[in-house]
Amino acid sequence: MAKKPVITAYEAAKMIPDGATIMCGGFLGCGQARAIVKELVKLGTKDLTLIANDMGRAVGPMGEEFFGIAELIHNHQVKRVIATHVGMTPEVGEQMNAGTLEVNLIPQGSMAECIRAGGAGLGGVLTPVGVDTLIEESPLCMGKQVINGKEYLLMAPIHADFALLGTYKCDEAGNCWYKGTMRNFNTVMATAADTVIAETEYLVPVGEIEPENIHTYGMCVDYIVEGERK
């Protein structure tokens, strides 16, 4: 199995230019590529579009200052976010009200499915979720359709320049295994970006993850970064 290049978090962050669209796996920082995010903060890469369930947390599980992508928001490096919930990151609301941050909220299931569609070659998603709500006016909503008498919204597929995965184990071929609730959006995001970088707590030899237990296939991963072990 061909090995994937192992790079530093700094080298990974350096690849991402100003104005890039980045998908960040993770749910309130759990399963997020937090070491790469730290380097992005240091580099000050700006005008980013972030696609993630939420915008991380201002305070980590053990009282850490910033946990995940919240720091990019606080550092004013983001121009647009596509998310499902930003209530744990009040700074998002403040920048939105100040007119410096565009926020597109979509339902969590629609977000997962739109990213899946983006990575699976589909032209969109028809979902009953969001009918009769403000989602009908979302830039990601392409209109309404009636199928067998029931209304559905047509949601656009989501694709990104980069996907940053937060994994527990990654083997040298890029196969990933997520512990606990880390999996969340990571597995779909791994399929829906031009460049996919897997940050992992443990870089392991090929074969250590049983073939039946590979959650993200190495064929989807372009680079591997060793992050912090928790």
Binding site: D54, A83, T84, H85, V86, G87, G93, M96, V103, L105, P107, Q108, G109, S110, V129, G130, T133, I135
Partner: peptide
């Protein structure tokens, strides 16, 4: 505007 999360 906290967001809908999974509620919808």
């Amino acid at each position: 505007m906290p967001g809908m999360g999974g509620a919808m």
